[in-house]
């Protein structure tokens, strides 16, 4: 564990807590894409299959349980909770996310480090996570007034993977043979997808104006 990875995990945890705070306290999911939440639930389900068979550390197990539990409860809230579901903008959350699941699965079957069920599913989760934010970014372009919590949620979610890139750089220089191109390229693409969001988020913060993404 290094400071970049810990900072990344804490940033990821913070993004989940911000979203849960928004949904649980003000019972609203305005501006939040259910499709991105469903994709993330699938990311964690396919990445943490070995949560009980491959013990890494107490920290690792606890964090996996938090990410799994929060992802599925957020999907449940938006789908089932009578108050929350009312604020779900289903007319604008129209990204056909099923069309990105299959290509990620096929790509994982073609490009992976080892052809075992565990590694292929893990690789699938990496490819899927790289594009999981797309429905959310599309929805933000269609959402007029993005509230602060939603903006913070997306920012933290993007920032966590950027910190993971620093972690990979650190591990590359400190651990011999630590080379994982699939992880690195997926993580880089994932972070680059946030580039214009980061730009507009920074502009809104600097000029102290409402966050708006041009359509």
């Amino acid at each position: 564990m290094n400071i970049f990875r810990l900072a990344g995990d804490m940033t990821h945890l913070a993004s989940v807590l911000v979203l849960l705070l928004k949904i649980h306290t003000i019972k609203s999911c305005a501006g939040i894409s259910l499709k991105t939440q469903e994709l993330y639930a699938l990311v964690f389900a396919s990445r943490y299959l070995d949560i009980f068979t491959h013990y890494v550390s107490f920290y690792n197990t606890v964090m996996k349980l938090i990410f799994l539990g929060s992802a599925f409860s957020i999907v449940w809230y938006i789908r089932r909770h009578k108050l929350v579901r009312r604020s779900y903008d289903k007319d604008h959350d129209t990204f056909r996310h099923y069309f990105i699941v299959l290509p990620c699965l096929i790509l994982a079957l073609l490009i992976h480090e080892k052809f075992t069920f565990r590694v292929v599913m893990w690789t699938f989760s990496l490819y899927l996570e790289a594009v999981a934010i797309l429905p959310q970014l599309v929805l933000l372009q269609r959402t007029r007034n993005i509230d602060n919590l939603t903006g913070q949620y997306v920012f933290l979610l993007g920032a966590y993977r950027a910190l993971y890139i620093l972690n990979w750089v650190y591990r590359y220089f400190t651990e011999p043979h630590y080379v994982h191109w699939i992880t690195w390229i997926s993580g880089l693409i994932q972070t680059l997808l946030y580039a214009d969001f980061f730009y507009y988020y920074f502009q809104s913060w600097k000029n102290n104006v409402k966050l708006e993404l041009p359509a």
């Binding site: 990875r5 995990d9 990821h12 070995d50 491959h54 890494v56 550390s57 690792n60 964090m63 996996k64 990410f67 480090e113 080892k114 565990r118 590694v119 893990w122 993971y164 972690n167 651990e175 630590y178 994982h180 992880t183």
Partner: peptide, 10 residues
């Protein structure tokens, strides 16, 4: 092993 090293991250 390679596997463990990969999967020690979240």
């Amino acid at each position: 092993s390679e596997d463990e090293e990969l999967h020690d991250e979240l």
